[in-house]
Simulated assay, not measured.
Amino acid sequence: MNVGIFGANGRMGRVLIEAVQESSETTLTLATVRDDSPWIGMNVGDVAGVRNQTIACTGISTIQPDDVDVMIDFTLPAAFEHNVNWCVCNVVPLVLGTTGLNQAQEQILKDAAITIPIVYAANYSVGVNVMLALVKQAAKALGETADIEISEAHHRFKQDAPSGTAIAIGKVIADELKRDLDDCAVYGREGKSPVRDHNTIGFATVRAGDIVGEHTALFADIGERLEITHKASSRLTFAKGAVRAAEWLVQKKPGLYSMSDVLGLAES
């Protein structure tokens, strides 16, 4: 299967190159960078620090769909519309890991999924997606009595807060409890405040150093508490999950899929 990567010189782009190379099922045939990037024309192996790569980085406006079965995109929201439109125009499936999309962009994504198959996930780690299934079960059993808090930590360079994964955890819990996350989420506390509203879901965010990603869902009642935690130690975890999603997606019909679909957890 031939794979292309948008934003090949980014932090995730470089790891995706490594993950595609490690998979026996995939071959990297396209790697894009910005049109003004000094990486244009450079061997992707040199960009990612891996061997046995023979293709060169290509400017985003000059890419061609020849010999590409699926694209993977972990770039920033600013590049989202161009990338998804390119995939739609060329009928190329897309694995999307860009977080921080606004409502208009989410609608563009839904519209694109009418034409092409898309996997969209806030986090491609297999462990995180198992965690999402577990917090749904915890919410069902404990949500009516326990206070719920979600904490997350990432590296100093991450721009969106809370993380897309933290929001995904909160949404799974809120949906299970028939609550609207937009109404019940509390994203910060400072100074004196009224007694905690039991129906709220709290979020706490840390940005520091080179933390790859840590997420905890806390269900706290009087006398006991349950904590469900996932810690990632390498970005390669996310990249391998994205490659797994690409392998799964390439034969699917148009539609918007999740990592839970890829892993067979959708009905959990």
Rank of each mutant, 00 (worst) to 15 (best):
Met1Gly: 14
Asn2Ser: 11
Val3Pro: 01
Phe6Ala: 06
Met12Ser: 10
Ala19Ile: 11
Gln21Ala: 05
Ala31Tyr: 07
Arg34Ile: 06
Asp35Leu: 11
Asp36Ser: 14
Trp39Val: 08
Ile40Gln: 15
Val44Ile: 12
Arg51Glu: 14
Thr54Trp: 14
Thr58Asn: 08
Gly59His: 12
Ile72Ala: 06
Ala78Met: 09
Ala79His: 04
Val84Thr: 04
Cys87Phe: 02
Cys87Gly: 05
Val92Cys: 15
Val95Met: 08
Leu96Ala: 13
Gln103His: 10
Leu109Trp: 06
Leu109Ser: 07
Lys110Trp: 05
Ala113Met: 09
Gly127Asp: 09
Asn129Trp: 03
Lys136Ala: 02
Ala139Gly: 10
Ile148His: 00
Ile150Arg: 00
Gln159Ile: 13
Asp160Glu: 09
Pro162Asp: 15
Ala166Gln: 06
Ile167Leu: 09
Ala168Asn: 08
Ala174Asp: 01
Glu176Phe: 01
Glu176Cys: 13
Asp182Trp: 04
Val186Arg: 03
Tyr187Met: 13
Val195Leu: 13
Phe203Asn: 00
Ala204Gln: 06
Ala208Ser: 15
Gly209Val: 15
Gly209Cys: 05
Val212Cys: 08
Leu218Lys: 03
Ile222Ser: 13
Leu226Ala: 03
Lys231Asp: 05
Thr237Met: 07
Ala245Phe: 02
Ala245Asn: 04
Ala245Met: 04
Glu247Met: 15
Lys252Asp: 15
Lys253Val: 14
Met259Tyr: 07
Asp261Ala: 12
Val262Arg: 02
Ser268Gln: 14
